[in-house]
Amino acid sequence: MTLNQFIYLVSRPLGSLKLARFLSRNHPKILMYHRITDKPDGEGVSADQFRNHLKIIKKDFRPMTLRDLLTADEHGNVPKNAIVITFDDGYSDFADVAFPILKSEGVPATLFITAGFVNGDIWLWPDKIKYLVSVCSQEDLTRIGSLTQNTVVGVDKKKNWNSICDYCITLDNKKIENFINDMAVATGVQFPKEPPDIYKAVSWSKLREFVESGLDIGNHSLTHPILTKLDEYELIEEINKSRELIKNNLSIDPSVFCYPNGKVSDFDDSVKSKLELLGYKYGVVAFPGENPLENRFEIRRYSADSSHSLFLKTVYGLKYISMVIKNKSPNLVNK
């Protein structure tokens, strides 16, 4: 049992959630979602779970957009128990499922869009792999020599997808593209020109409608590459072309950039310096920290888990308390 689980199990009957909320009141929680589904076998967090998340957030926290949180931080007046909902990528289910729920519950949100994906120029590469795995048999996959050398190929399609994606993340961006093409040739799979509905992006027209209703928009790159594996010219293309698409289609000049994948290995000082040079004020990652706003080019986020107990631990601050205890930090009693 982890320390976090122990704290939660022992103290919850004693009102631990309210206590944790109080102790973490000066620690803004920025939540990261990707997909919301209204189908039993769909991708991501279910619509019912998401609506329940919002009801909890409305009841006990101060929901706001990331832009408003960052502005408040600039002026030194971040509200207590601030919480932000962010989405990455810009799948069509954001328009079909997530935004209608956000609107009906009156909760603001920030969406980081992969501009080339929204523009209809690309599939996201993990979706290409998922599509290929879904239509292939295990026998088909074992015909790919490099795949069988680097991944475990079994009967579980989800595990195969995760394993292949983990392998691809070790490659540079061009090699990922070549590897996926090689898999398609070896298995005889032909990718449709446009992504199937399950992998489609939200449209610009829908985004314009949502922006008018208060949706906050940030940049998530042009093609969702691993930024640290780009040369300088490619990095500038990813940052600038995506920004131009957003400006031209939404009349917004985003000042916040969300690093694709968002792990420690996905950005570095060179990437951060280039963002600042090109006029960005903030960079957003995909992992939490005790002081989420301390480094403006490493704004920290929590993954919004579909597990109800893990969601409660995140939003009420038990994960934060666990971090503080683990790091022996004084933050728990500050302010």
Rank of each mutant, 00 (worst) to 15 (best):
270 S>Q: 13
263 K>F: 07
262 G>M: 04
269 D>S: 14
285 V>Q: 05
252 I>A: 13
223 T>Y: 00
301 R>G: 06
274 K>Q: 09
256 V>E: 00
291 N>E: 15
297 F>R: 01
299 I>R: 01
205 S>Y: 02
237 E>V: 13
303 S>V: 12
281 K>I: 07
207 L>C: 01
269 D>V: 15
249 N>D: 02
239 I>H: 05
264 V>M: 08
224 H>S: 09
217 I>K: 09
265 S>G: 03
292 P>E: 09
254 P>L: 00
219 N>M: 13
241 K>E: 13
233 Y>D: 11
288 P>H: 06
219 N>E: 14
261 N>M: 12
291 N>M: 15
302 Y>E: 10
303 S>N: 12
215 L>W: 08
264 V>H: 13
289 G>T: 05
284 V>R: 00
262 G>V: 07
224 H>Q: 09
290 E>H: 09
212 E>T: 12
259 Y>A: 09
269 D>G: 09
241 K>D: 12
250 L>D: 03
209 E>G: 07
230 L>N: 08
284 V>N: 00
272 K>F: 07
228 T>I: 10
237 E>P: 02
238 E>V: 03
270 S>E: 11
243 R>H: 10
221 S>W: 05
240 N>Q: 15
289 G>C: 10
217 I>P: 06
224 H>I: 10
279 G>Q: 09
293 L>I: 09
251 S>D: 13
249 N>K: 14
269 D>R: 11
218 G>S: 04
223 T>Q: 01
244 E>M: 10
274 K>Y: 07
248 N>E: 15
261 N>S: 07
234 E>L: 14
240 N>R: 14
226 I>K: 01
298 E>S: 13
279 G>K: 08
260 P>D: 05
273 S>D: 11
221 S>D: 08
287 F>S: 07
285 V>A: 15
299 I>D: 07
264 V>C: 03
285 V>P: 02
267 F>D: 01
294 E>G: 06
215 L>R: 06
239 I>D: 01
207 L>F: 04
237 E>T: 15
247 K>Q: 13
290 E>N: 11
287 F>T: 12
229 K>T: 14
253 D>M: 04
247 K>C: 03
219 N>T: 00
233 Y>K: 15
226 I>P: 00
223 T>S: 13
297 F>S: 12
216 D>S: 06
263 K>E: 10
220 H>F: 05
255 S>G: 03
217 I>T: 03
217 I>F: 07
258 C>T: 11
287 F>I: 15
268 D>L: 10
284 V>Y: 11
263 K>M: 14
220 H>Q: 03
206 K>F: 11
228 T>Q: 09
240 N>A: 11
246 I>K: 01
274 K>D: 01
253 D>K: 05
298 E>C: 06
208 R>D: 11
